[in-house]
Amino acid sequence: MDTSRIQLAHGGGGQLTAELIRDVILPALGGGQDPHALADAAVLETGGGRLAFTTDMYVVQPLEFPGGDIGKLAVCGTINDLAVCGAKPLALSMGLVLQEGLEIDLLQRVLDSAGRQARQAGIRVVTGDTKVVERSALDGIIVNTSGVGLIGADVRLGFDRIQSGDRVVLSGPLGEHGLAVMSQRKGLSFTADLVSDCAPLHELVSDLLDELGENLRFMRDPTRSGLAAVLADIAESRGVDIEIEESAIPAHRTARSAAEMLGLDLLQVANEGKLVAVVAEGAARRAVDVMRRHAIGSRAAVIGTIGPAGESPIVELATAAGGRRIVQMPYGEELPRIC
């Protein structure tokens, strides 16, 4: 029997399942070898208050890419979904669907990476589940992570708090996650220095919440469909025009040329460790300073302004060439699996 690969029986709930949990999953994610460390349900103390709850599926191909892997991506993605709604992440769950025949070494690497990321972020993975499916049903691994977090009593964020004159702040260069994954898949050689920006945002967000208070209106992480989707969503939901300055948007030179080569609009490319924040006009400088105290926010910049309310709001980009164009929600082109 080949013990280096996942078999259907690993998902059967019997001895092999128990061994997989004991030898591979718990050491990576849980506390030592205690079989109860990842129970079917976890009990968490919250001390009251508002709870944020999120869930996400991860299907990225390849499973490992420059700057990350599906495990790190899942942990960061879920932390970030909690953070941008103003919650302090409490705990995560991790569900795995594995392809029969998957190398256990690869699974181990991905889980170690997920565990390392969670420990670094100070957040525990408290429950999970594992299933195995036939070779023909899946190529690799699907990860589901859910997360819960607590929202402070004084935190008030949302579309409805955005006002004309507010500023749009971006925490760093655009497009690195999506382009790192895509260029690896398409074998673009000149993008060797492009790595995924996959990173947890909760510490940066926590500082923003502390220091900006009421002046922080809204946050979102520009993942799939990128900055364009976030801005289009704000414009539509709040009914306001938004004006963005292309030359103010931070971007890696290689990311710009890779996007051009692949025929993509950098504003529509996915990120996984970036934050878009809408802040009061007078607090914009402060927001940038707070972000820049963190390594992941070192290139933070004010990139635009919330305009007046209108009937059919648009997001308008003042281009680096000196022209003007609109920015829209992408229409779901055939994009590869990047998250």
């Binding site: 025929g263 609009d265 980009l317 003042a318 281009t319 680096a320 060439a321 022209g323 164009r325």
Partner: peptide, 12 residues
């Protein structure tokens, strides 16, 4: 065609 549209060059 795309560079012209993305750069908003017609507006210039």
């Amino acid at each position: 065609t795309m560079a012209i549209a993305r750069g908003g060059l017609r507006t210039i």
